[in-house]
């Protein structure tokens, strides 16, 4: 009898040990104004995914510019305030990316995006004078960070971390996964994809790049590991008035939707925040600007550019891992 018992317990430990290794857990839910899914593989998958979800909801309540009671909302209302570690980190990074991209990334555009009605979806085309006035407030260099305190130095200045918050969140989830002992996982925060390690069977993750023309196939497929893939394009959110389509990525220089000839920009890097911030800013820069930025930048990232005319360009670092039915050019670092 004792032998049988002992044997059974050994069996349990042994067998469940195996099945744990191949175990996968995922959860999908709505947060940050989009649909998210989080998948972890490994023994601790369930608890890791639960912690990830908690983290997402926590960050949403800190970083959303549109949620009352969020830290960013309060900061915009009061013009200054003491903020949590996470929010400070994201603001600091936003300001860093703003400098890095010479203003193509601008976290202080909220007064202008509000004029266009993007946050509350009450779309309209503002008057030129309105835009010019609002643009005077869109000055990231007037945002001061002092330890845990942030001051917006222009009256009426407002920040929106939307173009970087999801990237920060996905990187943070990957950190949680690692802390939980997860070696394989994938998060998709409404099209912001970040992967950890490889798939459980050791093969690379396949991430498809959405086609701005949704009625045709994907732009291509990317085989990656440990990378964040973020695509930005005017197709994601837009409205049409008098036959003209206005999209949500505004050019910080003139306050109008960026008409750079690009239809979508994908940035691939190890850092979710870098991918997120650069995908928006490179979209604003246009094809030539984006290629130039890629060539000159010391940051480690790769790009996929898709123009309005349907021309596809891929940077050299991912050219071999990118698979597409379309022809594509390869851009190299000098």
């Amino acid at each position: 009898m004792k032998k049988v018992l002992a044997l059974t317990f050994i069996l349990i430990i042994f067998l469940t040990g195996c099945s744990f290794g191949s175990y996968s857990y995922s959860d999908s839910f709505f947060a940050m104004d989009t649909y998210m899914s989080v998948t972890a593989n490994g023994a601790n998958a369930q608890s890791a995914v639960k912690k990830a979800k908690k983290q997402i909801l926590k960050l949403e309540n800190l970083l959303s510019a549109h949620k009352e009671k969020s830290e960013v909302y309060r900061l915009n209302k009061n013009g200054s305030g003491k903020l949590s570690n996470d929010t400070i980190k994201v603001i600091k990074n936003a300001l860093k990316f703003s400098r890095l991209t010479n203003g193509a990334f601008n976290p202080a555009m909220l007064p202008v995006t509000k004029l266009w009605g993007f946050p509350d979806k009450k779309y309209r085309v503002p008057k030129k004078s309105e835009i010019e006035n609002a643009l005077k407030l869109a000055k990231p260099e007037k945002i001061y960070v002092n330890k845990d305190e942030v001051t917006l130095n222009l009256k009426g200045e407002e920040i929106d971390l939307g173009a970087i918050a999801k990237g920060y969140t996905s990187s943070k989830i990957i950190e949680i996964f690692k802390r939980e002992g997860i070696e394989s996982g994938i998060v998709n925060l409404g099209g912001n994809v970040q992967t950890l390690g490889t798939k459980p069977d050791g093969s690379l993750w396949t991430v498809a790049i959405e086609n701005p023309d949704k009625n045709s196939g994907y732009l291509g497929q990317l085989k990656i590991k440990d990378k964040a893939v973020v695509t930005s394009g005017g197709y994601e959110r837009n409205f049409t008035k008098n036959g003209k389509t206005y999209h949500h990525i505004l050019n910080p220089e003139n306050g109008y939707p960026a008409e750079s000839g690009l239809s979508s920009v994908t940035v691939v890097s190890r850092d979710g925040m870098l991918s997120d911030a650069l995908s928006t800013s490179l979209f604003v820069m246009g094809k030539n600007g984006a290629e130039k930025f890629y060539k000159e930048s010391e940051k480690d990232f790769d790009i996929i550019l898709y123009t309005d005319g349907g021309k596809l360009t891929v940077s050299q670092g991912i050219a071999d891992s990118f698979n597409s039915q379309l022809d594509f050019d390869i851009v190299k670092k000098d």
């Binding site: 049988v4 059974t8 069996l11 067998l15 469940t16 099945s19 175990y23 996968s24």
Partner: peptide, 20 residues
Amino acid sequence: TYYLPVLLVSGLITGILIGI
């Protein structure tokens, strides 16, 4: 279907334990 092997094995083990 992915769960099948896991569930067969776990069913067997819990079944034996319960039998005892």
